[in-house]
Design a binder for these strands. Structure first.
Length: 530
RNA sequence: CGGGAUGUAGCGCAGCUUGGUAGCGCACCUGAAUGGGGUUCAGGGGGUCGCGAGUUCGAAUCUCGCCAUCCCGACCA
């Protein structure tokens, strides 16, 4: 009888999560009846079924975009504000960002970079110095025109990126080849006046890391650009468990003002690609525009070779879309704010009987460097907490109740596979450590497999069109003539863009371009992109 | 920036056609019993109906304008 009541409540939640829109009411009631059947079938063995535990989110299959927004809000990663296109990153979301900062910053330091902070405001005249750069960013710059009530002599741009201000300072600091390389990174916010925004994926203001380096030779700048791309790839795959494809951008997708742009690209759960990081070789373009010069070993004054590179809070969006499922977030242990959540099972005077052992376990795990949350709130039932922490993607749940204490064990449950296990207290630490490793590796592997399933190779534009028209288009590799006009045509006809020219791909040698039939110059990876 | 939809309590919605001073579910607060997959009962608090004008004795409801959000397209980490 308790069961029936529980089912009823579970059924109401999906409707509660629904948003505006006429079609939704019908959808909701349809799902209601489906759910009540499965719920009843599950009976008391619900724990083994591994589905529909969390019901407050729109299923991915029904509407991926809505699913994404539901997860962002229900998991309390971010919320909307009164400022158009600007979101709050809530504590749980910000904790993920802090993990990203922590893990990436260590890598940047290890490769010789140091952090600094440059101004938010950029004088208009500075921004105008590099022609391509201006053209690229002009449409999305926010301007400050007044200080208090007084109009400014010169407008100030709120940085959309910092190449120009940093370049100006580099010009001031650089004298000799002995000053090189300059390897500076900054963690900052930037503003781009976007027309369409989505939490994490594209917001008016966002947080990122931008590295800016200056080098003595072209080769060194290229080496730096590629080194960082590798750092990004290793970081994203190791810590976020997001497999990425590294490669060079086509000229039309290049950063405004760069000689060459490289990117890492990830495939999302809905078959669209997300640019997860970029690294630019700026050549001498900015050095010439901003007078970044030095006297060389040969006594001749010359322009430096510069690079810039960045990853942003967009990575969090990628994380959600790569690993998440219909129950919500699934976080890789390495970036999860909490790796283990302990849910005590309250019975009788549980505060005296169950809570102390739970606290002891928390302390024990914490001492081993595991990030633990003990959810001792009395107002919620265990079942409610299970669902809540699943929605928030915590990798491992640890249940401990009177029966477990009697038997000297706990219950562990994995978020990714939903596997549930009784573990003797003595084995707890090694088991948790092992599972954290398994989950981290498992998520990467699963994402890789999914990407392989959704990767195609074709030499036929007809097949290309058919694939791109599918529900989950994925990645398509194709031999390519490298012509921007044809690229634009493909985009118009199929919505697909070139993500990059992958470093590791079948050779285009001797192939014909899949659109024009002309000799292929390169292998391109196409996808519909975010 | 173009096309479409929506805006009523924290969230999801009803009320609008036919104007008469706002309601439901969840959430929240209090108390009790519960507690191993979103617990139950009882009591309670919360809304200048997105904003601004207009019509009217009277507007959530009718008219106009603006704003925001979501979806679909053109531009972008």
């Amino acid at each position: 009888m308790k069961r029936a009541a529980a089912a009823t409540t579970a059924l109401i939640s999906p409707c509660a999560a629904m948003r505006r829109g006429a079609g939704i009411a019908a959808t909701c009631s349809r799902r209601k009846s489906e759910m009540s059947q499965s719920q009843q079938k599950d009976g008391n063995k619900g724990a083994g079924k591994g589905e529909a535990f969390v019901t407050a989110i729109t299923p991915q299959s029904e509407d991926f975009s809505r699913w994404y927004l539901d997860v962002v809000r229900r998991a309390e990663l971010a919320d909307y504000t009164m400022v158009k296109g600007c979101m709050v990153i809530r504590p749980y979301g910000y904790a993920i960002w802090e993990r990203i900062q922590h893990l990436l910053d260590a890598r940047l330091k290890a490769t010789g970079h140091v952090n600094a902070y440059f101004p938010l405001f950029i004088p208009e005249s500075l921004l105008m110095k590099e022609a391509d750069h201006v053209a690229g960013f002009a449409p999305e710059v926010a301007w400050v025109t007044h200080g208090g009530s007084e109009k400014l002599e010169e407008r100030l741009a709120i940085r959309p990126t910092s190449e120009v201000i940093i370049g100006t300072l580099y010009a001031k600091w650089l004298q000799s080849w002995r000053d090189l390389p300059i390897l500076i990174n900054q963690w900052a916010n930037v503003v781009r006046w976007e027309k369409v925004t989505r939490p994490f994926l594209r917001t008016t203001e966002f947080l990122w890391q931008e590295g800016h380096t200056a080098h003595e030779t072209e080769a060194e700048a290229e080496e730096e650009t590629l080194k960082i791309l590798q750092v990004y790839k290793e970081f994203v795959e190791t810590e976020l468990a997001m497999p990425v494809i590294e490669g060079r951008k086509s000229d039309s997708e290049k950063f405004a003002g760069a000689s060459k742009t490289y990117s890492i690209e990830a495939l999302m759960g809905d078959g669209r690609a997300l640019q997860a990081g970029t690294s630019h070789n700026l050549g001498q373009n900015f050095a010439k525009a901003f007078d970044i010069k030095f006297q060389g070993r040969d006594k001749v004054e010359q322009h430096a070779w510069t690079t810039s590179w960045g990853v942003s809070t967009r990575l969090i969006g990628g994380l959600i879309m790569v690993h998440g499922d219909d129950s919500g977030l699934v976080l890789p242990p390495n970036i999860a704010p909490y790796q283990v959540v302990i849910v005590p099972i309250p019975r009788g005077n549980w505060q005296e009987t169950v809570l102390p052992p739970a606290q002891a376990i928390r302390d024990q795990l914490t001492a081993q460097g595991v990030r633990v949350m003990l959810d001792a709130r009395d107002a919620y039932t265990p079942g409610w907490k299970f669902a809540e922490w699943e929605l928030r993607g915590v990798p491992i749940r640890l249940e401990i109740g009177p029966k477990d204490i009697e038997k000297g064990q706990v219950v562990l449950a994995r978020r990714d596979t939903r596997e549930k296990q009784f573990v003797p207290m003595a084995d707890l630490l090694p088991q948790v450590s092992q599972w954290l490793l398994d989950i981290q590796a498992g998520l990467l592997e699963k994402a890789r497999q999914l990407r392989e399933e959704r990767s195609h190779y074709t030499e036929s534009y007809e097949e290309f069109k058919a694939l791109m028209a599918g529900a989950r288009p994925g990645l398509i590799y194709a031999p390519w003539c490298d012509d921007a006009v044809v690229e634009a045509q493909v985009k118009t006809e199929t919505q697909a863009t070139i993500r990059n020219y992958p470093f590791t791909a079948p050779s285009a040698e001797g192939k014909a371009c899949f659109v024009t039939g002309r000799p292929a110059l390169v292998m391109a990876c196409f996808a519909k992109a975010y």
